[in-house]
Write a protein that binds this DNA or RNA. Structure first.
Length: 438
RNA sequence: GUGCCCAUGGUGUAACGGUUAACACAGCGGUUUGUGGUACCGCUAAUGAGGGUUCGAUUCCCUCUGGGCACCCCA
């Protein structure tokens, strides 16, 4: 009995099957993404899952957790050092440079949907292979682009039925940030003894991260710490203020959070995170984040090119949609179900099915079933509007039965007029539904 | 990577250191060899893996695997 189980191979840790039931949510999300992309003028790009490890080392940052301990890295047969992508922005920038997209009208607006890989410890809403969608606008410095991307990230999730809050900050350009880090270090230097163990490690390596430590003492210290906003350059400050002004024009629930520092090194200036705030205990769940990455193109060998973008974790969105009980249609029902009885009818109906399908009808069948009862049951499950029934009797009369699945009323019609008869009924059906909706 | 909790058919649950591991749903078959959405009957199917304690383990212990939570980090 357990012999079968002994040989069973199970899911690799942190991986996930996305089953048909869940696909209903994914479909809605994909549709919404396409819709936003069309309206905002973004085009889809797909980059490979495998890239040179150096791409991520140089962009995401060698000292970040994502690169230093979470990458799926390996040496290929040919000796190349490769990694499964832990995020998608670096690849897109690589592609932008490689394909000379600087010659296209700027900004180049791209979006992606695809799996990413991080060898992190799994938890609800956190997988080692996880899907992200993201929007990137490369080649434009204008703060209105920042605001628009924030708007996309906000409205898209909002329209999926989630309760969303955006938190915004500016992490400054490289110069002002270095300036700020110095100030921050000075501030923490005097209070170093109050910091937790982790923060003492962070102090030198990643000073900014001290700000979002969850430790109570550290948080208190963080609250009184000098804020990045006060150390922005004139230009940076102006840019950020403009972003906020545009946001004020829109109906977006956002708050300023001076403690937002993104986990990837390439971010500059505007940075934001998107949270679900439906949880009763007031806890915010991060669904996505984004920001400017004005130095990224140049750091990969391109011309200095400003850019903004964001990414959202799809599994987390699905999870929240399920929690929020966002309604999903249980798959489309079909219009016509073809049922058959007997050898002859079977042969004829396999052709009939094909013909109806080719003529654009939404049809369904279970030709392998023999009993009419089974077939009607499955027609019911597929929520067919009408079932065509063909048996020995109908074949010899050259007729067919049309059964209205709602009323159970059946009519015999001429087999040759079948398409017309179906059409007539479907039109009537449609008209009735329209009236009902009114 | 660290700590805590969990693991029974496809799903949701039950039970016990000792005959055949119970129930519901789903699946399949039948009652009705031509009628579903609403009946009845039957069948299939499980103690995650490995080791130990024991006369005997699904139950107790250890390891592994997987899941959940927290930390870390992030999406």
């Amino acid at each position: 009995m357990s012999k079968k189980k002994k040989n069973r191979i199970q899911l690799v840790k942190g991986m996930k099957d996305i089953l048909p039931d869940e696909q209903l949510y994914w479909n809605i999300i994909r549709k919404k993404i396409d819709n936003f992309a069309r309206n905002y003028g973004f085009f889809r790009i797909d980059t490979p899952i495998v890239e040179f490890t150096n791409l991520f080392k140089r962009t995401v940052g060698e000292d970040t957790d994502v690169v230093s301990k979470e990458m799926y890295s390996f040496v290929s047969q040919g000796g190349d050092k490769l990694s499964l992508r832990p995020e998608n922005t670096a690849s897109i920038v690589r592609s932008y440079i490689e394909h000379g997209m600087l010659n296209l009208p700027q900004p180049v607006k791209l979006f992606y949907v695809g799996p990413q890989f991080r060898h992190d410890n799994p938890q609800a809403g956190r997988y080692r292979q996880f899907w992200q969608f993201g929007f990137e606008a490369i080649g434009d410095n204008d703060p209105i682009i920042d605001a628009q991307l924030i708007a996309i990230s906000y409205y898209l999730l909002k329209e999926l039925g989630l309760d969303i809050e955006v938190q915004v900050n500016s992490v400054g350009d490289v110069n002002s940030r270095n300036e700020y880090i110095k100030v921050l270090k000075k501030y923490y230097q005097d209070n170093k003894k109050f910091l937790c163990k982790d923060c003492n490690l962070r102090f030198n390596k990643n000073t900014l991260r001290l700000l979002d430590c969850k430790n109570k003492k550290c948080q208190e210290l963080g609250n009184d710490a000098p804020q990045m906003v006060d150390y922005l350059s004139e230009e940076g400050k102006e840019h950020f203020m403009s972003v906020l002004e545009y946001l004020d024009e829109l109906d977006i629930k956002y708050t300023l959070n001076p403690k937002i520092v993104r986990g990837l090194d390439y971010y500059t200036r505007t940075a934001w995170e998107i949270f679900d705030c439906s949880s009763k205990d007031g806890k915010l769940n991060a669904l996505g984040g984004g920001g400017r990455y004005d130095d990224l193109v140049e750091s990969l060998g391109g011309r200095p090119t400003p850019a903004v973008g964001f990414a959202v974790g799809i599994e987390r969105v699905v999870m929240k949609m399920q929690e929020a009980k966002v309604p999903v249609s249980k798959g489309r029902g079909c219009d016509i179900y073809v049922a058959q009885l007997g050898v002859e009818a079977r042969k004829k109906s396999i052709r009939l099915f094909e013909e109806l399908r080719a003529n654009g009808f939404s049809v369904s069948e279970n030709m392998s079933k023999k009993g009419l009862k089974d077939q009607l049951e499955s027609a019911d499950k597929k929520r067919a509007k009408y079932t065509l029934i063909m048996g020995q009797k109908e074949i010899s009369d050259d007729t067919i039965l049309i059964r209205d699945m709602e009323s159970g009323v059946q009519e015999i019609v001429d087999y040759k007029k079948i398409k017309m008869e179906i059409k007539k009924r479907l039109d009537k059906h449609l008209a009735k539904n329209l009236k009902l909706k009114k």
